[in-house]
Design a protein around this nucleic acid. Structure first.
Lengths: 110, 110
DNA sequence: GTATGATATGTCAGATGCGACATACGTGCC
DNA sequence: GGCACGTATGTCGCATCTGACATATCATAC
């Protein structure tokens, strides 16, 4: 980062001295999406393991088939909140969620 | 659970045979709140470790001091989405988030 | 073919979450 | 006392998320 840029950013109130923050803004979002994908995959895996269809899962978690489909697809309209709540309602423990959170998703890169 | 109840629930579409789901509905919410508390604590710990105040964190994560305060208090108006996004923007890795997710919160029981 | 079941996609009204602002509370210093 | 700083709490208008519904797509069986 050149001094000019640094100066401007500082004027805007950025903590430029603490490099990680600035460099991480884009990465943070990428990591977030990766997490979402991993959780979505875990949800589907859990469902399949128990031989349930999306409609049955919808009943269990208190939602609808279409939303379950969107959850599994990590649709942009689905929050991590909803994914985690659903996993927990399917019987996942906190440790299971943690595992999914740090897991590498198997989805192909975009 | 007596047979009468079981029958009624099945008629309503519940997967009663799979006990965990039904019994876990309340627990799931409790676990969810515990997770939120743990993430909130981690956020505060990260901030303090770097000797930042809430206003500075607000700038970094793109929010306001009041919302950061609410995040750290695990206020009901803040989502896990926001907590995780904020942690990532503060430089936490996915593994760090996972650790927090499974960590026991130090908050006193209600 | 077409019927049946499962999954995906699009849309919408109502619910929830968000940043921002004002303001209250607390603590230390003068 | 007052002032400065940090944190907490309440509220609000706007944005995003959610369950529900309709409908599409895709298999598999007959």
């Amino acid at each position: 980062m050149d001094k000019q840029t640094k100066k401007r950013l500082e004027a805007d109130g950025w903590q430029v001295g603490d490099a990680q923050d600035f460099l991480g803004l884009a990465d943070a979002e990428a990591e977030f999406i990766e997490m979402k994908l991993a959780l979505a995959e875990d949800l589907r895996a859990r469902r399949l393991k128990r031989h349930l269809n999306q409609t049955q899962v919808a009943r269990i978690v208190g939602s609808s088939q279409s939303r379950v489909a969107k959850m599994e697809a990590a649709d942009s309209s689905v929050s991590i909140d909803l994914l985690i709540r659903s996993l927990l309602k399917l019987g996942a423990a906190r440790a299971d969620v943690a595992k999914a959170v740090s897991a590498q998703s198997h989805a192909r890169a975009s």
